[in-house]
Simulated scan of single mutants.
Amino acid sequence: MTPAERFPWATILPFEGVWPEIHETAFVAPGARIIGDVTLGPQASVWYNCVLRGDIHRIEVGARSNVQDGGVFHVEGPRPDTDGCPTIIGEDCVIGHMAVVHGCTVEDRGFVGMGAVAMDDSRIGEGAMLAAGALLGPGRHIPPREIWVGRPAKFLKTQSEAQVEKIRFQTERYCRLAEKHLAELRGASKG
């Protein structure tokens, strides 16, 4: 069964002959649009009305990571001065509602807050957080476990291990929520 058949309520399309690759345990919600060179790992979830457009470079969402409602992922394609910037999301990451992630890397257990923007060639380190509403400009890097806030984003503080564990809790919660939403959607489609 193809991803488009598994998730008939979403828009899953090829671009230039490249179809998204969606792990059999991943979840894609109604209204989501996943186009082209996009890979969703085990138990990854893409929620209502998200757009992941892998047309000029690739997008990868790692195991158990979630892209919450209204999130927009795109990439920067090759130019004369660069090979471009894919969007790479590690494992156990949280991407908050309405976040825009463009040609950025989010390392394992990274967190992008609601309404935040991460731009080309930026990087959010392992267990680090870009706070809600923050803007991480092109080429900026947040070191592991740091919290950055504001527009433009600036260092606020370093997270404790307990704070980083809260990110893992959120990803586990979203894995369970995805299973419940999928069960509801499948039940509704049979009725």
Rank of each mutant, 00 (worst) to 15 (best):
T2M: 03
P3Y: 03
P3D: 11
P3R: 01
P3F: 04
E5P: 02
E5A: 13
R6F: 05
R6A: 11
P8V: 06
W9G: 07
A10T: 10
T11Q: 12
I12W: 03
P14C: 08
F15N: 12
E16V: 01
V18I: 15
W19E: 15
P20T: 00
E21M: 03
E24D: 15
T25K: 08
T25Y: 00
T25D: 06
A26L: 09
F27R: 12
G31F: 06
I35E: 10
I35N: 07
I35W: 10
I35A: 04
I35C: 05
G36A: 04
D37K: 14
D37M: 06
G41D: 14
G41N: 13
G41H: 13
P42Y: 01
P42F: 00
Q43T: 01
Q43W: 03
S45P: 05
V46D: 02
W47R: 09
Y48I: 08
Y48Q: 13
C50G: 09
C50M: 06
C50K: 01
C50T: 15
V51F: 02
V51D: 03
R53P: 03
R53M: 04
R53N: 04
G54Y: 04
G54T: 04
I56N: 08
H57G: 14
I59V: 10
V67R: 00
V67K: 00
F73L: 15
F73P: 07
F73V: 13
E76W: 00
P78M: 09
R79Y: 04
P80I: 08
T82G: 13
C85N: 15
T87N: 09
I88K: 06
I88V: 15
I88N: 05
V94Q: 08
G96I: 05
M98K: 14
A99G: 11
H102A: 10
T105G: 05
V106E: 01
D108T: 02
G110H: 08
F111V: 11
F111C: 10
V112W: 05
G115S: 08
D120C: 08
D121E: 13
S122D: 10
S122W: 04
I124P: 06
I124Y: 03
I124A: 07
G127D: 11
A128Q: 09
M129W: 01
L130T: 13
A131C: 12
L135W: 06
L136A: 11
L136K: 10
L136G: 08
G137I: 07
I142V: 15
P143H: 02
P143W: 00
P143G: 07
P143K: 01
P144Q: 03
P144E: 12
R145V: 00
G150N: 14
R151G: 01
A153W: 07
S160H: 02
E161N: 08
A162Q: 14
K166M: 12
Q170T: 07
E172W: 02
R173D: 13
R173P: 02
C175F: 02
R176I: 01
L177D: 15
A178C: 07
A178P: 12
K180V: 09
K180P: 00
H181G: 07
H181I: 03
L182M: 14
L185D: 01
G187C: 08
K190E: 15
G191I: 10
